[in-house]
Simulated assay, not measured.
Amino acid sequence: MTSRVTLISPALTPALREARFDDGSSELDAAGVHRARSAAAGLSGADRSAASPSTRCRQTAEALGLSAPPQLPALAALDVGRWRGRTLAEVTAAEPDAVASWLADPARAPHGGESVRELCDRAGAWLDDTARAPGRVIAVVEPDVVRALLVRALGLPEPAFWRLDVRPLTAVDLSGRAGRWNLQVGTPLGEAP
């Protein structure tokens, strides 16, 4: 049985512009809402939809015309513990060794939250569960969740997590089944391929 999963990153927010660790409450700005609404016409239908529980992902899903279940903790952003709400520059200035350790070792969580490995495992389990049902799923998820899903789907080494860039309001398509996924590299939504 083949499944197709389209992962869409949220539209632009002030937190994304500032490289700020989101606390889950960052809202889309007017340009982000407009761009997501404009992109909605380019989306194909889906059998199911999903979204990270953050405000920006839920607002993006809504602007795209998707009706996602209210809470999917498996798709939550990486828990960055005490770094939540701060910019990467602020954290790096205050805790350079902790940031270096976190970036170098996927099993480390010096911020008191979860490690990249734990995020990859959590997101990968969601992908495996999703693959058990046929059809197409559109999921609006945090950029770090997109990266974690790609690491698990493609069997990449965990350090590759930091090498995958996910731009706002872009789509990535996975097709296949648990244990064997194919990647179709995405194009920005609302633009011709």
Results as ranks from 00 to 15, higher is better:
D173Q: 14
A36R: 03
S54R: 09
T92I: 12
L189I: 06
T92R: 15
P168R: 06
T87M: 09
V91H: 09
G45R: 09
E191N: 11
D129T: 08
A41H: 11
L12H: 11
R147V: 10
A153K: 05
A68D: 06
G155I: 14
R84W: 01
A107R: 13
T60E: 04
Q59C: 07
A93Q: 14
W102Y: 13
R37Q: 09
T170Q: 08
R147C: 08
R180P: 00
D47W: 00
T87Y: 11
S101R: 15
L169V: 03
Q71A: 13
L103Y: 04
C120S: 10
R84Q: 14
D144M: 13
A148P: 00
D105E: 11
I138C: 02
D79I: 02
R180C: 11
G81Q: 07
E191G: 08
R163K: 14
G113H: 02
R117L: 15
P73H: 03
T55I: 15
Q59D: 11
A125W: 05
P73R: 00
T187D: 09
L156W: 13
G24A: 06
R163S: 14
F21E: 06
A131L: 04
L78F: 06
D22F: 11
W83D: 03
V151Y: 04
R122M: 02
S175D: 15
T13M: 07
V172P: 00
A100R: 12
G65A: 01
A19Q: 13
V151A: 10
V116F: 05
V137M: 04
A94H: 10
R35C: 09
A61N: 02
L72Q: 15
V140R: 07
F21S: 03
S38D: 13
P143F: 11
A63P: 00
A19F: 14
W162N: 10
S3K: 04
R17M: 09
E142G: 11
S67H: 08
G32C: 08
A131R: 02
A171P: 09
D97I: 05
A100K: 06
E158V: 14
S49C: 13
V91A: 10
S49Y: 00
V33A: 06
A104F: 07
A153C: 12
S26C: 09
S44D: 15
L75K: 04
P53F: 01
P110K: 06
A94E: 14
A171Q: 13
P73Y: 01
R122Q: 01
P70E: 13
R117C: 11
T60W: 01
A123N: 05
A148T: 02
I8F: 03
T92N: 13
A11W: 01
T130F: 00
R4S: 13
E18M: 08
E142C: 09
R58A: 05
N182D: 15
R58I: 00
P70R: 06
S175H: 15
V137L: 12
R152F: 04
R167Y: 15
R132D: 13
A51C: 08
G155H: 09
A63F: 03
L169A: 05
A15G: 09
T2C: 04
L66T: 00
S26Q: 07
S101D: 15
A139Y: 01
